[in-house]
């Protein structure tokens, strides 16, 4: 089966998010009173796996080994079956 995983990477709570802060400041200048802005990165990964469980496990491994840095980031995986 083919699956598409959507991986969202966010800074851990308490970490500074300079990009988010800069965007918030620009929104303030435009007159929007945004409470806060946080940035995140999103990756979509298409892969073959025997089951949804196997696909999720594989993507989780990818996140731990490369895509996220567990010291400063959290990750979230959403999985969808293709076809």
């Amino acid at each position: 089966m083919q699956y598409q995983a959507t991986v969202t990477i966010e800074q851990k709570a308490g970490m500074l998010d300079p990009e988010g802060t800069t965007i918030k400041r620009a929104l303030d200048h435009l007159g929007y009173a945004a409470e806060s802005v946080k940035t995140a990165k999103l990756y979509t990964i298409v892969l073959e796996a025997e089951s949804a469980e196997a696909a999720e496990q594989k993507v989780d491994e990818m996140c731990q080994k490369l895509i996220a840095n567990p010291i400063v980031q959290n990750y979230r995986i959403e999985l969808a079956e293709l076809n």
Partner: peptide, 16 residues
Amino acid sequence: TEAGLLNGALTTNEYP
């Protein structure tokens, strides 16, 4: 740090 040879992480400067 990314290779795990040193502790911690280096992230975007506080003033980016």
